[in-house]
Design a binder for these strands. Structure first.
Length: 376
RNA sequence: GGCCUGGUAGCCAAGUGGUAAGGCAGAGCUCUGCAAAAGCUCUAUUCGCCGGUUCGAUUCCGGCCCAGGCCUCCA
């Protein structure tokens, strides 16, 4: 009989490190918020997935059974918009980028989740959950939409440590005459003409962003489960809203026992954006460096810290590093060579990944020379 | 403005109250010797600042300063 393994893990709800104590001895239920599949995933998505993968592998190594659930959000405003741009259906967009996500994470050595529910496969459960919230006075129908009544949920703000008053004070939230309170959020959105829709008691429409995770975690892990993970940016409003929905429907004391949030990947010390030099997809990076190096790099710093993803942009002609201003220009300030974005992008360097690559090579070399390799 | 997290050597960075990992850079040495590579050794009496708790704190508590994040979709 083995001793009870303990993982001391920072918990966002309590704001402190706490032992991860399984509800059911020997078993951990883990829910990770997966991607909205409307585009290729970037290294920030990879970091969240790898953090969860590392926890799953560690717990299993400790002899625990782990049920790892990671959803796919396959219907959403962004997917609908993307479908219009690409001239294909929303379902086709979702299928395409779900496959790409799998390929990318496989390449990084991430284990597949035990269950990977999709929103479009969970509609009846979502509708049932919304009906419960309405019956309990925590949600209301308005113009074909359904909103969560934030003011009726007394502990709203517990995870993100903010009060309704705080939020209302600096409120620059979406204004809508359909809402009782600007902070109320959509559980169900009425379909506009031409949009994908499912039938509901409130008319055809689709689920809001937050309700899906409440429904899917309940279906696959039960009303209460051990660990919920995701990126820091999901703390508010997404995870806060999940708590309101799930506890609103199932009672206080239910839902996730422990909350784990990983830090961001920063690009060149700046906020990520699609402009040159600070936004990179997983496959862009793994095309330049071995996936092992990328994984090593991403787990090389503490999971809650920001990870600075430094980028060097050398001039294709003279190889001198170009600063941000020079990158935007049309010619190299040193040698005068013409510059264009595509060329720069093809010559980009990631010093952190180069170092990680060397470290990985060193580890493999050491392993190859160990007595157990039989090659001594 | 509110809330959250963090501040560890020149730089990056680990660290579950018991006396500071590792990497890069740097210095010395070995072997070479046109150079380089490689190997070995060294490099924080100290963990933003000030108090407190403790036999003992980088680790816990309080205050202050600074940085980043969130408060709108976001991993």
């Amino acid at each position: 009989m083995s001793t009870t393994p303990t993982l001391l893990l920072y918990d966002t709800m309590s704001g402190s490190k706490r032992p991860l104590e399984p509800i059911e001895p020997g078993h951990i239920g883990l829910y990770l918020c997966g991607p909205t599949v409307y585009d290729l995933s970037h290294v920030g998505h990879a970091r969240s997935a790898i953090c969860a993968d590392t926890v799953v592998r560690f717990l299993r190594e400790q002899g625990l059974r782990v049920t790892f659930v990671r959803n796919v959000t396959d219907i959403d405003d962004k997917i609908i918009k993307r479908a219009q741009v690409e001239g294909i259906s929303a379902g086709e967009v979702a299928a395409k980028y779900t496959a790409a996500y799998h390929e990318d994470l496989d390449s990084l050595g991430c284990l597949r989740p035990d269950v990977e529910p999709r929103v479009t496969g969970t509609i009846p459960e979502i509708v049932a959950l919304i009906e419960t919230l309405i019956a309990r006075g925590l949600a209301y129908e308005s113009g074909g939409d359904v909103y969560f009544r934030v003011a009726a949920f007394s502990t709203y703000g517990a995870l993100s440590k903010r009060s309704l008053d705080d939020m209302q004070a600096g409120a620059r939230v979406e204004v809508s005459e359909l809402k009782e309170n600007p902070l109320d959020f959509a559980l169900w959105k009425a379909a506009k003409p031409g949009e994908p829709a499912w039938p509901s008691p409130w008319g055809p429409g689709r689920p809001g962003w937050h309700i899906e995770c409440s429904a899917m975690s309940k279906v696959h892990l039960g009303e209460t489960f051990d660990l919920h993970a995701g990126g820091r940016d999901l703390i508010f409003p997404h995870h806060e809203n999940e708590i309101a929905q799930s506890q609103g429907a199932c009672g206080h004391g239910t839902f996730a026992r422990h909350w784990m949030h990983n830090g961001f990947v920063d690009f060149a010390g700046e906020k990520m954006s699609k402009s040159l030099g600070n936004f990179f997809t997983i496959r862009e990076v793994t095309a330049l460096y071995p996936p092992e190096a990328v994984r090593w790099f991403l787990i090389g710093v503490h999971y809650r810290s920001g990870l600075n993803f430094d980028v060097e942009v050398p001039c294709p002609a003279c190889a001198r590093p170009l600063d941000t201003e020079a990158q935007q220009g049309s010619a190299c300030p040193e040698c005068g060579a013409a510059l264009d974005r595509d060329r720069l992008r093809a010559h980009i360097r990631f010093p952190g990944l180069e170092e990680a690559d060397e470290r990985v090579a060193y580890v493999y070399d050491t392993l190859a020379r160990s007595p157990r390799s039989g090659r001594v």
